[in-house]
């Protein structure tokens, strides 16, 4: 599928009475592509996620966000989500009284709704071989190596870092959005589970499918790059520095460079546009 699924134009965002976090940011992701957005702490990664999602408190001073060709800059959160946008959160809140099973079921219901609305192009809302939502949720729990009783736990209450990630993934798998934003998908995950999580993300993003058959798009936001080796081919990498995309290009060039020199070099690169191993923005 051709064309852009997410296009961000000249986005400037302030928080807390005027503090500018994103500064004239531009970003484009096409259908079927997976991008990685790298950046040091405080560069504006979280602000970008919450702004794309439409959370309050992130004031858009300038610019537009287009999702599937529609200007969603002023759309409520849930409407964006029902267009096929999903986020895997790094620090989701505890939701006392709402069981994990319930929330995963709700995600499944929402997918059904999206299929009915025609926003998601799928024929079958349930994962292959599942009889109903409860059954699907159970199977997802098994896949995530959760005991069945875990589904009765209040969502995110007392979850470990790895459990949060797997719970988030369960929800996203039931929701199957067209664009998945993954916020630090490997933070707090132990070594045994990182491969599992990487494998599932790979499937969700259809990374191994033929490019022509790939619809699902992804934006992986991270300040470290461990998980990327498990996910496989990433189409494009961006570096976010001080609220701006400082550098975009091939992940094969940008990632090794960051591994080698860290974000400090990027910082210098932005300031001087001097010598850098990172290709495209070099002047």
């Amino acid at each position: 599928m051709n064309g852009s699924i997410l296009r961000i134009e000249n986005l400037t965002v302030t928080v807390n009475g005027g503090k500018r976090i994103l500064n004239n940011l531009n970003l484009n992701i096409d259908y079927g592509e997976t991008h990685v957005l790298l950046g040091p702490n405080g560069s504006g990664k979280s602000t970008l996620i919450y702004t794309i999602l439409g959370y309050p408190g992130y004031n858009i001073e300038n610019g537009h966000i287009y999702f599937k060709g529609k200007d969603i800059t002023n759309l409520p959160v849930e409407e964006r989500v029902l267009m096929g946008l999903g986020v895997l959160f790094q620090h989701p809140p505890k939701v006392q009284g709402v069981k994990l099973k319930k929330i995963v079921n709700i995600c499944g219901e929402r997918l059904q709704k999206m299929i009915e609305m025609g926003t998601i192009d799928l024929k079958e809302p349930l994962i292959k071989g599942c009889i109903d939502l409860d059954d699907q949720t159970k199977k997802l729990a098994e896949l995530m190596k959760f005991p069945i009783e875990f589904l009765e736990r209040d969502t995110n209450v007392g979850f470990s870092g790895g459990e949060i990630k797997r719970s988030e993934l369960m929800q996203i798998m039931a929701l199957r959005p067209d664009l998945i934003i993954l916020d630090e998908p490997d933070s707090g995950v132990d070594i045994e589970n990182i491969e599992l999580i990487g494998k599932i993300i790979k499937e969700l993003l259809q990374i191994e499918a033929k490019p022509i058959n790939r619809i699902k798009a992804g934006l992986i936001i991270t300040h470290i790059t461990h998980i990327l080796q498990y996910i496989g081919k990433i189409d494009r990498a961006h570096v976010l520095i001080n609220g701006r995309i400082a550098c975009s290009g091939s992940p094969d060039i940008i990632i090794p460079s960051i591994m080698k020199y860290g974000f400090d070099e990027c910082q210098i690169c932005v300031l001087t546009r001097g010598d850098s191993e990172c290709g495209e923005n070099k002047k």
Partner: peptide
């Protein structure tokens, strides 16, 4: 919490 549930498509 409300926002989190909205991010799963609830109003």
């Amino acid at each position: 919490q409300i926002l989190y549930l909205k991010s799963r498509g609830l109003n």
